[in-house]
Design a binder for these strands. Structure first.
Lengths: 197, 197
DNA sequence: TTCTTTTGCTAACGAGCGTTAGCAAGTATA
DNA sequence: TATACTTGCTAACGCTCGTTAGCAAAAGAA
């Protein structure tokens, strides 16, 4: 199910560079001339590869959404696995996506508001759906007697909030590996949820 | 210690309206003409009251920083109070600031990057100092045997992350009052930290 | 009344914005 | 060799941006 055809290399490079700039300066404050300059091009030349500035943002946001869904699906594929373990794997998958491309993640988390309709509404629907998946997982865990929380929706929100703060401070050359970060976050966040410690 | 003189009413109104727009569209994507229009003015008229667009952002960001520090200071003023209780009060104070003006909070959290130097660096220093205060409090709690966490810095980051997600979903007309939200967040977040439950 | 402050207007400035048209060189494929 | 695709340039388009200058009405203080 190849949902995204592989981009031509120059186009992919534009996306990567733009993503870094969008993260550093914000989408609206990043100009096409700045982006072109970063790539050693003239502004007009960009349009041999892309249709518009927003097209880049669109690809980044929706591409990452796909990755998050894929990670969650992989973590919860086996219904025989205890729900608490599934949740732990979902947390780790989420962290893996966040750390694998933290620039794109930061754009995904903060710059989606600059999508114009109808893309913006579509994006928010995806985001809600993802959030609902975590909520449902936690609810299943409570029903199974594996987790406890006064409010599953609340728990899901704070859980994702903690995870999504990661791109703000994660540095690829930091002392913790992505796997260690994921493990530690999972420990800490499940600590407040697990029924029997 | 009056650090901020009361603003003339029109100026205060401009700040409020600008804050709402900055939150909704982002600082860079909000134009002075849009802001003026929202106030029933022409763009040039704004400059009878303010010096520049950034001046507004500066006032919002640093004004809120002051509120956060004041809240924290109040929560940790009494050294006789158990550290865990101080932390709970600090969480509740933080939430109170976030909910009292969630638009300004959102701007504080996301739009500071559009401050130009040296304000940007000054702001980040304040932010780091605030974060360090929470970390120190948690460390004190661990030392006193009231809290447990494998890494105080990590715990402080995830704690603030969960709290700072609040302006993204908080609605003043929601079913939970700010006090209830604060209490529930404190419960949930301390749940993962308290040594004896 | 006179003076100052507050508030707002119109008109315009220089600059930067995203984007397009038209052209041309290089590269891969047939 | 011929053909198509990729990549990039220059020049310019219409537009919006933040901001300023100069003027004027209204309100409050003296």
């Amino acid at each position: 199910m190849p949902t995204a055809a592989p981009l031509r290399p120059r186009k992919a490079q534009i996306d990567r560079t733009a993503t870094a700039l969008f993260r550093a300066r914000g989408f609206a404050a990043t100009s096409m001339r700045e982006l072109a300059n970063e790539l050693g091009l003239e502004a007009g030349s960009l349009y041999s590869h892309i249709k518009s500035k927003e097209e880049i943002l669109h690809r980044v946001c929706f591409g990452l959404a796909e990755e998050f869904f894929a990670g969650f699906a992989g973590a919860t594929a086996d219904a025989a696995t205890p729900v608490a373990a599934q949740l732990r794997q979902a947390i780790e998958a989420h962290v893996q996506v966040l750390t694998r491309d933290s620039a794109a993640s930061a754009v995904f988390l903060h710059e989606w508001r600059h999508l114009t309709e109808p893309a913006r509404t579509e994006f928010l629907a995806l985001r809600d759906r993802y959030e609902a998946s975590f909520r449902a997982l936690i609810e299943r865990g409570i029903a199974a007697g594996e987790l406890e929380a006064p409010d599953a929706a609340f728990a899901a929100l704070t859980l994702l909030a903690s995870l999504n703060w990661l791109p703000s401070w994660y540095r690829p050359d930091g002392k913790l590996t992505p796997a260690e970060i994921a493990h530690r976050l999972a420990e800490q966040l499940l600590g407040g949820l697990l029924l029997n410690e």
